[in-house]
Design a protein around this nucleic acid. Structure first.
Lengths: 222, 222
DNA sequence: TCTCTAGAAATGTCCAACATTTTCGGAATC
DNA sequence: GATTCCGAAAATGTTGGACATTTCTAGAGA
């Protein structure tokens, strides 16, 4: 196992394998379209035939891996078209969820959003200071937590699931941009702050506009 | 294997098992919240430990089954809340997809929509004549095909996937309504016809309105 | 250069076994 | 009588090896 992942409460091998593989796909250690041969994966990550196949099925359901009968698994391709498609769905889903969250969210939710925003600011600052892999991982996690916190109050488990799925699919692209120094940190920071303010003042239209801008900013990097 | 499913081009055991299980969940042979013990399933549907687990992972990714670490699998529950949540997501996703499809669809697409509508009409008529399981199955398939045809031209694979996922989750509810005689066939027929007309005349607003009505009709049966 | 075909590689499937975890019924306790 | 606790039974999760089938590939033959 490459990353000795923290053993969370649910410590089945399959889940641990999934963690490692997810990370390696997000970070580009496993490249888009790369064929995933079971034996290679097993020598690299451990686990039996069975466990590895089950892991790959899970990643398939998350859209990170694609399965073809009799032809095994490969990392989902990541073309410009894919990025656009993911962004399209994300924009639509997150618009709806954010709109509902602003309607339904209570003070506790606002608090969690503020906390997530604060953590994200810290993580972005840390990453600009020390752009190593570990910090990048934490930054990536903070992005995810912030996005999730925003929508958490939408009161629709399936909407949240769908958001999470496509957000996770977008990670590869965001991390790649970050590595290439193509993220406009100042603009991000401004957008995130404005978004937070819009949410706290229950300005739905403005919040949605900013959210959309944030997603689409990753479509056409500077 | 209960249903001797037609061996489509991809005849892996796992896919065949998935077909049988999907059907039995949709038809209520496997009830919501029912625990799915591997050994029971294996004696009933065949397949090895390995294949059955993989099958269940696939159904999990489709939202038909839920997995809990160390506690196995169970059929996803199907409460009123679930139905409402599914309908909510379906309405939003299908609105977006249909809107795009009407913008982007060409004549060939319109033809496919008409064909699917025609087939659906036939299937509904057949079902009202002879409400047996086989006819129900064909009707269900025609519903699915029609819904898919409508959105097909939206030019977003992920939007289509998402639609399909939640449509499939809604099948159980629709089939249950049908069995209980709670579907208003006349209203359905009228809506479907109106929807087709709206699409053919590129009347986006009207089409979306009708689509929404069609989904929400299953929320509050007569 | 192209096609075709064996052989190699990889996938999909099954079985049998075992470690670990959960479940469940009943004994002991309050 | 209700609750807690415990141990046996059941179920899940994991492994390794074996084998059939399919796909891939490199080289022989046209």
């Amino acid at each position: 196992m490459i990353f000795s992942a923290k053993k969370s409460e649910d410590s089945t091998i399959v889940e641990l394998l999934a963690l490692s593989l997810r990370r390696d796909i997000a970070f580009g250690t496993l490249l888009p379209d790369q064929k995933l041969k079971l034996n290679e994966l097993r020598t690299r990550y451990g686990g039996s035939n069975h466990s590895m196949r089950e892991t790959l099925r899970i990643l398939t359901s998350e859209g990170l891996v694609e399965a073809t009968a009799q032809r095994g698994f490969r990392v989902t391709s990541a073309t410009e078209d894919d990025l656009r498609d993911i962004a399209l769905v994300r924009v639509e889903v997150e618009k709806i969820a954010l709109s509902r969250a602003i309607e339904l969210g209570d003070v506790a939710w606002e608090g969690r959003v503020m906390a997530a925003h604060h953590a994200l600011q810290k993580a972005e600052a840390a990453l600009r200071d020390a752009p190593d892999d570990l910090t990048a991982l934490e930054w990536d996690e903070a992005c995810r937590a912030f996005a999730l916190a925003l929508l958490e109050a939408c009161d629709s488990p399936r909407l949240l699931d769908t958001h999470a799925k496509f957000f996770d699919q977008s990670r590869r692209f965001r991390l790649a941009l970050m590595r290439e120094g193509k993220l406009d940190w100042a603009a991000r920071k401004a957008r995130q702050k404005a978004l937070l303010d819009a949410i706290l003042s229950k300005d739905k239209a403005r919040a949605i506009e900013l959210l959309q801008a944030d997603i689409e900013a990753e479509l056409k990097p500077k």
